[in-house]
Design a protein around this nucleic acid. Structure first.
Length: 208
DNA sequence: TGCCAGGCCCTCTTTAGGGCCTT
């Protein structure tokens, strides 16, 4: 199932939860999806300029030795800005990745990304309220999607989020009886109260 | 000094609290 729009699905691994508290990105992974297919990939480790905690080493599998010779965040983010330029974005719990994207772009003097940013977690909560929970790993298993590598590495998580995104496009298309699902409809779904989701899809359904 | 994320979302709500997600 396709959308008429291309998107970049991305995932950051970071030193913690909050750029305002001094946390930095340590890895970015992203896939560009066009017409239902992954057509490009981006993955870079980046050196945050300080040692990461044992917790983050354990959580991500990225250790200080791996980051010691990695290029600095500024170099990687300049390159990544080119990868996402002009593309709408998707991430799982997008508010988290948006904060780090904006912080890292701001740190190198670039403006915030201008295109829309959709959240696969918020949409999944509306489409799959019966799922055990809405963590990425749980949803991958719940939807029977193929695992693409180790969870909590950026490219693997981006790949699996992309598969979840495509699966949700198919779900929306099936429920609405449409063949193409615009990005804008997914954004509307994301912002629709759960109890109004069925009505939204019914309104959007092809009357024929 | 003391504290330390942010924001959505549900409900035993709205003069609030707590769980969920991301690292």
């Amino acid at each position: 199932m396709n959308t008429t729009d291309s998107v970049v699905v991305l995932d950051f691994e970071t030193t913690g939860l909050s750029p305002r508290q001094g946390d930095r990105a340590i890895e970015i992974g992203a896939v560009r999806v066009v017409e239902g297919r992954v057509v490009a990939r981006f993955q870079r480790l980046m050196n945050p300029g300080f040692r990461i905690s044992p917790f983050i080493e354990s959580y991500t599998g990225i250790d200080n030795a791996m980051l010691r010779d990695a290029p600095p965040c500024a170099e990687v983010m300049h390159e990544f800005a080119g990868f996402i330029e002009g593309h709408r974005l998707v991430a799982h719990n997008a508010a988290f990745d948006r904060r780090f994207l904006e912080a890292e772009l701001d740190a190198i003097g670039l403006a915030p990304h201008a295109e829309a940013f959709a959240c696969s977690m918020r949409i999944a909560r509306r489409l799959y309220p019966q799922a055990p929970n809405h963590k990425l790993a749980t949803l991958v298993d719940y939807r029977g999607l193929a695992r693409q590598g180790a969870f909590h590495r950026a490219l693997a998580d981006a790949e699996m989020t992309a598969q979840l995104w495509l699966g949700m496009l198919a779900e929306v298309a099936q429920r609405a009886g449409r063949s193409l699902v615009p990005f804008g409809l997914m954004q509307r779904l994301e912002g629709t109260p759960k109890r109004a989701v069925d009505a939204l899809l019914a309104d959007w359904a092809d009357p024929a």
